[in-house]
Amino acid sequence: MKKIYEFNSTIYSSEVGKGGAYVIFPFDIREEFGKGRVKVQVEFEGIPYEGSIVNMGVKDSKGNICYIIGIKKDIRQILKKDIGDIITISVQEKEDR
């Protein structure tokens, strides 16, 4: 069984006016997974999603690179969450098939 990462994140806008959004994965993915892009199974407050943790050039307030997970608009609508809201997330590396 793969490790489950649970955390809260603010929902950030990926592009002003474009509608995209993401959350920041608050762990060092190279340390945790040994690679820079990871396919994952995610639950956004119980809503399942499959995607990847990626580096899209996003930096935190200290200038450190952040790894992110996209959150689709339909998931945000179901949860009644939008840019700036806090969301609870559960992430697990996707099983190789």
Rank of each mutant, 00 (worst) to 15 (best):
M1V: 09
M1I: 08
K2R: 10
K3Y: 01
Y5E: 00
E6D: 11
E6V: 14
E6F: 09
E6H: 12
E6K: 15
F7W: 02
F7R: 03
N8K: 15
N8D: 08
S9Q: 04
S9P: 13
T10I: 15
I11W: 06
I11R: 03
E15M: 14
G17T: 06
G17N: 09
G19H: 11
Y22C: 06
Y22Q: 06
V23F: 04
F25H: 01
F25Y: 10
F27P: 07
F27L: 01
D28C: 02
I29S: 08
R30S: 06
E31T: 09
F33W: 10
F33D: 01
G34V: 07
G34N: 08
G36H: 09
G36F: 05
R37N: 07
K39F: 09
K39Q: 13
K39V: 14
K39S: 08
V42H: 04
E43T: 14
F44P: 12
E45R: 03
G46T: 11
I47D: 03
P48V: 09
P48H: 08
P48Y: 08
E50M: 12
G51T: 15
G51N: 13
N55C: 03
M56A: 10
M56E: 14
M56G: 05
K59C: 00
S61M: 05
S61D: 09
S61Y: 08
S61R: 11
K62F: 07
K62E: 10
G63T: 05
G63H: 09
N64Q: 13
I65Q: 02
Y67A: 03
I68K: 06
I69M: 15
I69E: 01
I69L: 12
I69H: 04
G70N: 13
K73Q: 12
I75G: 00
R76H: 04
R76F: 03
I78Q: 08
K80L: 04
K81H: 05
K81Y: 01
D82Y: 12
D82M: 06
G84W: 08
G84S: 02
G84R: 12
I86W: 01
I87C: 03
I87V: 13
I89F: 08
I89A: 00
S90A: 14
V91K: 06
V91I: 05
Q92V: 15
Q92C: 13
Q92E: 15
E93W: 13
E93S: 12
E93H: 11
E93Y: 11
K94Y: 04
E95F: 10
E95Y: 11
D96R: 13
R97F: 14
R97C: 10
R97Y: 13
